[in-house]
């Protein structure tokens, strides 16, 4: 564990707490993509179910439990509790375009060996799917052209999580010769998808302005 990874995980955890806070205080899931949240549940379940048969550390297991349960809870809030506030007409990104390529890639590029096939394929699937899971949310943002400030804080914390993993990988390569090409390449793509968002967040939201996309 190094500082970058720890801050990344903390940022990830914070993003989820911000999102739950936003939905509960506004009693609305306006501006939130159900499809992106559904993808995160798929990502977390396919990657973190290994907590049943793999033990890394107490920290690792607790975080996995947190991510599976909190993302499921968010899905419940959106789909059941505050369902009337959901507007499916703007959340139109097609999920098969993301899930099918991620599934195919995971069958081709994975770390499977004779001992572990399914768990390794599921792991790489979750990594590929995570790297693009934010797209329905960014697409929704693009369509509405603006966002509540709290939603932009959520997106910033979520993007910062994977961005912080990049110095972590550099650090791990330098100190333990650890290289995970699947995670690194997907992580770079995932972070790059936030480039536009980060730009507007830093130039507008941080200065107290409303998040609005240029017309």
């Amino acid at each position: 564990m190094n500082i970058f990874r720890f801050l990344g995980d903390l940022s990830h955890l914070t993003s989820i707490l911000i999102l739950i806070h936003k939905i509960q205080t506004s009693r609305s899931c306006r501006g939130i993509s159900y499809k992106t949240q559904l993808l995160y549940v798929i990502v977390f379940v396919s990657r973190y179910l290994d907590l049943v048969w793999t033990y890394v550390s107490l920290y690792n297991s607790l975080m996995k439990l947190f991510f599976i349960s909190s993302s499921s809870y968010i899905l419940y809030l959106i789909k059941i509790r505050f369902r009337p506030t959901l507007d499916p007409s703007i959340d139109t990104f097609s999920l098969p375009y993301l899930i099918i390529p991620a599934a195919i890639l995971s069958l081709i590029f994975n770390y499977a060996d004779e001992k572990a096939w399914l768990s390794e394929v599921l792991w790489s699937f979750s990594i590929y799917l995570e790297s693009v899971a934010i797209l329905p949310q960014l697409f929704l943002l693009q369509r509405t052209g603006e966002a509540e400030t709290i939603t932009t804080h959520y997106l910033f914390a979520l993007g910062a999580y994977r961005a912080l993993y990049i110095p972590n990988w550099i650090y791990r390569y330098a100190t333990e010769s650890f290289v995970d090409p699947i995670a690194i390449i997907s992580g770079l793509i995932q972070t790059a998808l936030y480039a536009d968002f980060f730009y507007i967040y830093f130039t507008k939201v941080i200065r107290g302005q409303k998040f609005e996309l240029p017309a």
């Binding site: 890394v56 770390y111 650890f178 290289v179």
Partner: peptide, 10 residues
């Protein structure tokens, strides 16, 4: 050298 199969990252 640690291998990537350990998946110790979140």
């Amino acid at each position: 050298e640690k291998n990537h199969h350990s998946h110790d990252e979140l």
